[in-house]
Structure formats: C-alpha cells, structure tokens
Write a protein that binds this DNA or RNA. Structure first.
Lengths: 202, 202
DNA sequence: TGCGAAATTGCAATATATGTATAAATGCAT
DNA sequence: ATGCATTTATACATATATTGCAATTTCGCA
C-alpha cells in the first residue's frame, strides 16, 4: 500500500470525509451539497463520486464489515449453544465493530446517530442496510442450526433485530444517552429471547 | 363528490396511476420517468406532482390507513387480553386492510410486492414506512398496557414486526405464493410470542 | 354571462448522479 | 532521466426528480 499515489488517494478521501462531516454538522445534511463538499475538500465535484457512490454513502462506511462481523459470530457457534446466546454474542460483536468503525480518527458515529435521527433519507438508508443484512444472517443461521427451517430462522433474526432496534430507537427518542440506548438494545434482546408472552404476567 | 370537476380529478388521478403501474410493469421502476408517466396519462409532467408527492408515492398509497388500522386494533384491546393475542389480531387487521387497499380496482399489491423485491429504492421506502409506524404503535401499546415501560413496549413491537416481516421476506425469496408469505408471517408471530428460546429444544 | 376559485401548465432552477472524453499525475522499465 | 502505460482528476454534457412561480385554462356558480 506504499507509494505516493496511494497516500494521495487516502488524503483526498479523508479530506472529502472531513469536509462532509464538518459541513453536515454545521448546516445539516440536506443543506449541504456535494458541490460544497468537493469545494471544501478542494477537488472537483465529479471527483466526489469517484470516492463515494452517493452523498449518503459518506455516512455509511464499512457497513459490510459490520455484517461480516455478525456472520463471523454465527459461523463460530459453539457446540450446542442456544440461539439466544449466539445472537447475544452477535449483538456484542456488532457493538464492538461499530465502536471500532471510524475509518479515520475523528468520531463519525455520534454525528451519524444524530443525523439519522433528524434526516429521513438517512434513517431510511440505515434501515435498508440493516434489513438487507437479515437474509444473509438467516442463511448463516440455517447452516449452524440445521434443524431450523429457513422461515423460522428468518423469524428469529427478524424478531431479534427488530426488538433491539426499536427498543434502542425508543430509548433514543426519550433522550437517552448512548449507554441508555445500548441497555435498551439488550433489554430488547431479552424480550425477543423470552418471547412477548413473558411480558404479560409481569 | 359530485361535479364535473371532482370526476375529472379522479379520472386524472386514475389515469396517472394506471399509466405508472403499466409502465413500471413493462420496463421497471427506474427505467420509467415521470415525464413518460405524464405523457401516457396525457397530462403535463408538472401535473404529476399535483397528484403525487413523489414517484415512489404512486406505489405507497394509503399507507396511513394501514397504520391507522393497526392503531385501532390496539386501542380496542379487550380487557385482560394478552399482548400476543392483541398483536395477532393487529396483524390480521393489517392483512385485511391491505387486501382492501387498492384505490382502484386493479391489483396493485402483487406488482408492488414484485417491484419492492427488485428495486432497492422501493424496498427502502417500504421499510421506512414500516419503521416510522413502530414508535406510534409503541406509544399506543403503552396506553393500553399501562404496566409496560416504553422500551419494553418498543421491543415487543419491534420483535413482532421484525419476525413477521423477515419470515415473510424469506418465504417470498423462496418463491412462495401470497398464501405462503402470509403463513410465514403467522409463523413469525408465533415465534416472536413464544420467544427465540422456544426454537432450541425442538 | 361573467366572476372567482381551482386545476393545469410552462418555465426556470436546483440537486443528485452518470457517461465520456481529455488532461494531468504517477509508476515503471529502459 | 526519459518515455510509455496506467491511473486519477477534471471539465463538460446529460438525465432525472423535485420545487417555486406565474400564467393560463377550466369550471362552478351567482
């Protein structure tokens, strides 16, 4: 990866990324144009699209890595490990992967979280990414739980991801901190594992 | 609703709708432009946006009605009714609402399902609509289950919707018929209600 | 018939995104 | 170092969605 060329590419990418994040922070996502990002990074507007497929993509880097992190956990199911345990481990791996996420050293995650809450376009994109991952997770799950039919495996993945996502979303909407959101996610997992019926008699 | 004016508006809306659906079927969603839809409906391109807020909107009519149908079921919780029973009734109401959905008489749902499977933009939109509804459902649930904290209620909604959605999605990806998809959704509900742990010992 | 409201339209403008061709920068072999 | 090949950056052009505004047409009704 040595060479002037590679280093310059990294520098340009970083410049675009920093410019985008700064402008998004200052003026909001919709109010920032690709042309402005390019200008702030001192490149031509067209060049932006050589580095990022779309304006949204700036905020969703390494999404595949996170999917892969989840798949890895599933593939490493311990013998006889119950579904809930495995999926809980998967969640913790996801959190860890997100914490290490930042391509560069400044914190992208908080901004993304803030913007995803405010900008419908970004919320939709985040959801879509998560949803697209679920059939893959389902397939992986079927392989390590051969007794599971695909529909049931899909239901398991959907129930799990849905519970932790919406629980986290509610916590965030109530003004919770990152830790609160995380705790809500874990609470969601618990409920998904034990079933909704476990909420009745409490 | 009498009057030449109203009738003409309905006719124009219908013409746009039919043209859009036909063109989407023939060439796909991305390959169809708003200008073409307008031309096929014999109106000016600008007029399209007087009837539909966006190109996507053509395929997501009455989404609020379906959300309302679900909210109505929640608000009508029978005394002491368990969470799972209520949510199952909600699902059946949703299915019924979707069956009655078509604004006009031709079947929009199968096309929408097919296109949502093929076109990422539409998939994202459908997901977003569903996700946006979940906090509302959560709030409604909290009102009729006062002992439920918001995060748990959110987890319940998310688990439920996630399970039925992904189970249905998997069934569809496996080439299932509409009935198969519906059955998968019910199976997903069952799993969400009983909990993922119920899948272990089977 | 003619007035006022509503619908339709045309035109302009902005933004994302993509294709294409050209120019510039860079790596490499000689 | 020089020249060639490859990559990168850029300028230009284009397609499309979407919105604002003004003009115009159409319609309902007094």
């Amino acid at each position: 990866m040595e060479g002037h060329r590679e280093r310059k590419k990294v520098r340009t990418r970083r410049a675009l990324l920093e410019a985008a994040v700064r402008l998004f922070s200052e003026r909001g996502y919709e109010q920032t144009t690709v042309a402005e990002i390019a200008a702030a990074a001192d490149v031509a507007p067209r060049t932006f699209f050589a580095y990022f497929a779309s304006k949204e993509d700036v905020l969703f880097l390494h999404a595949e890595d996170r999917g892969q992190a989840m798949l890895d956990v599933i593939a490493g199911r311990k013998p006889g490990e119950p579904l809930g345990d495995l999926l809980s481990r998967m969640f913790e791996a996801l959190v860890r992967s997100m914490a290490e996420d930042d391509e560069l050293n400044f914190a992208l995650s908080p901004l993304r979280a803030r913007l995803m809450f405010a900008e419908p376009a970004l919320r939709a994109r985040g959801l879509a990414l998560m949803m697209e991952a679920q059939p893959m997770l389902t397939e992986a799950l079927c392989e390590v739980y051969p007794e599971l039919d695909p529909v049931s495996a899909g239901a398991a993945v959907g129930s799990f991801m849905g519970a932790l996502t919406v629980a986290g979303l509610i916590a965030q909407q109530q003004g919770g901190s990152n830790e609160d959101v995380l705790a809500a996610g874990r609470r969601g997992i618990e409920i998904a594992v034990n079933g909704l019926s476990s909420l009745d008699g409490s």
